[in-house]
Simulated scan of single mutants.
Amino acid sequence: MRGKTRSFPTCPRRRAVARGAALALAVAALAWTASSSAEETQPSAERIKAAAEEFDRGRRAYLAKDFEQAAGHFENAFRDAPSKETLRLAIRARRDAKQPARAATLAALAEEKYGSDAQTAQLVNETLAETSAQLSEYVVQCAAPCTIAADSRVVSQSDALRHRVFLDPGVHDLGVSFQQGGSVSKRVEAPKGTSTSLAFEPPPAPRPTSAPTAAPVAATPSTTVTTSPPNEKPLGPAVFFIATGVTVAAGAATIVSGIATQNDPGPDAVRRGCVGQGESCALYQRGQDAETRTNVLLGVTVGAAVVTAVIGVFYTQWTSATSTSSASSSPPARLIRSSTSSSGASIRVSPFGLSGRF
């Protein structure tokens, strides 16, 4: 009986188990490497897990001969959980991807961090001997921890004060980003087979900007802004009219009192009734009291007239223009009525006032 060879398809479940086992081994290896290295800060469990996932992607990409993709995953794994094994795989992947500048830059980093490791030192020497003559080396010194980018691609693996970067011959834009904030850039022309030192300092902190001031708004030609004049006088016209009324009333009372003084008892009655009695005569005394009353009213009228004039001129704010009539050039006629008694009493009445004498 002839035997037959049968091929069995790979079980997806077995592939998943194998993949999980590989990932677990990668996590264990990275965790052991990170914990055994005295030069590196112990990464967190989350970063170790992320590094293991990147490492597994890089391994599968490398087996698929996608060397550039594999190198990117190995570099990501190194950033999350630095180890010499991961860095060596990244160097080999860059060499296989025909990217000598990136491979030499990683080799310079491996020489600085793991130069005492025999396997790492051998790979570093091979890589630099193979590529350094074709490249341009830049030793970058930063005044504060920084990262380096060449032509918008990050070429450093962490923030540091010193970096060795290899570039292909030609013109490149170097970008330096500082950990404390800020960045600077420099365009360089990289000649083949040379080494150049560069130094960078963080840019000065930006000055605090003041709040912008509002620009004045210009009035349009068609807009007219009018403002009322300030009210410099405290009283309105009503006060002046009230004062005028008081003055007129006082003047009327003065006129009435003057007429009464002249007629009650009157000069004729005093002359007839006070013959031979002198100033002690009752009629004379009554006439003198009337004269005093009239003089008091006259003083009140004059005072009210003065106050009214002051209010009208100096303290009244007139809100509308008033037309003024021209005064007559001739003075008003004065009416003087005199009467003399035997005792020498006389009374004078005029529109400006009234005065009497006995």
Rank of each mutant, 00 (worst) to 15 (best):
Leu106Ile: 07
Asp80Trp: 07
Leu128Gln: 02
Leu161Cys: 08
Gly312Asn: 04
Ala260Glu: 03
Ser346Val: 09
Ser183His: 10
Ser7Trp: 14
Gly181His: 00
Phe55Arg: 15
Gln122Met: 09
Pro230Ile: 12
Ser328Tyr: 13
Ser328Trp: 05
Gln179Tyr: 15
Ala282His: 13
Ala110Asn: 15
Arg207Asp: 14
Ser320Pro: 03
Phe241Tyr: 15
Ser320Ala: 11
Phe358Gly: 03
Arg207Thr: 15
Ala238Met: 09
Ala243Gln: 01
Glu85Val: 01
Gly356Tyr: 01
Gln285Tyr: 14
Cys142Gly: 04
Gly170Tyr: 01
Thr316Ile: 00
Val306Ile: 13
Ala253Gln: 14
Gly245Ala: 14
Ala211Asp: 10
Lys4Asn: 04
Trp32His: 11
Ala321Val: 05
Leu283Glu: 06
Val275Leu: 06
Phe241Thr: 02
Val139Asn: 08
Ala21Leu: 13
Arg286Glu: 02
Ser132Phe: 09
Ala18Phe: 11
Ala282Pro: 14
Asp173Tyr: 02
Gly258Gln: 08
Ser37Ala: 13
Ser339Leu: 01
Val302Met: 12
Val313Arg: 12
Pro191Asp: 12
Arg19Glu: 14
Gly303Val: 11
Arg95Cys: 00
Leu354Cys: 11
Ala304Ile: 13
Ser343Asp: 13
Ser326Tyr: 10
Ser177Arg: 12
Gly193Thr: 09
Cys142Phe: 01
Gly182Asn: 01
Ile347Ala: 00
Ser330Ala: 08
Met1Gln: 04
Gly278Met: 00
His163Trp: 00
Thr127Cys: 06
Ala250Pro: 00
Cys146Gln: 06
Cys11Ala: 06
Thr319Glu: 10
Gly20Glu: 15
Gln317Met: 07
Leu30Pro: 10
Leu128Tyr: 00
Arg337His: 10
Thr213Tyr: 04
Ala104Ser: 15
Ala345Thr: 05
Ser355Thr: 07
Thr194His: 13
Thr220Val: 04
Ala16Thr: 12
Val300Gln: 01
Ser339Ile: 02
Gly273Asn: 11
Ala211Gln: 06
Val307Thr: 12
Arg153Trp: 07
Val256Ile: 11
Glu201Ala: 14
Pro221Lys: 06
Asn76Cys: 06
Ser37His: 14
Thr86Asn: 06
Glu39Val: 09
Val349Asn: 15
Ser346Ala: 13
Val188Gly: 10
Asp289Lys: 13
Ser83Asn: 02
His163Ala: 00
Pro206Cys: 15
Cys146Trp: 05
Asn231Phe: 02
Val184Leu: 05
Thr247Phe: 09
Val275Ser: 13
Glu232Met: 10
Ala218Ile: 11
Val349Cys: 07
Pro331Gln: 03
Ala101Pro: 04
Pro265Ile: 11
Ser257Met: 08
Ser136Thr: 07
Ser183Arg: 10
Arg59His: 01
Val139Gln: 02
Phe314Trp: 08
Arg13His: 12
Pro212Tyr: 01
Thr194Cys: 05
Glu111Lys: 14
Ala118Pro: 04
Ala269Glu: 00
Gly356Ala: 11
Cys281Thr: 00
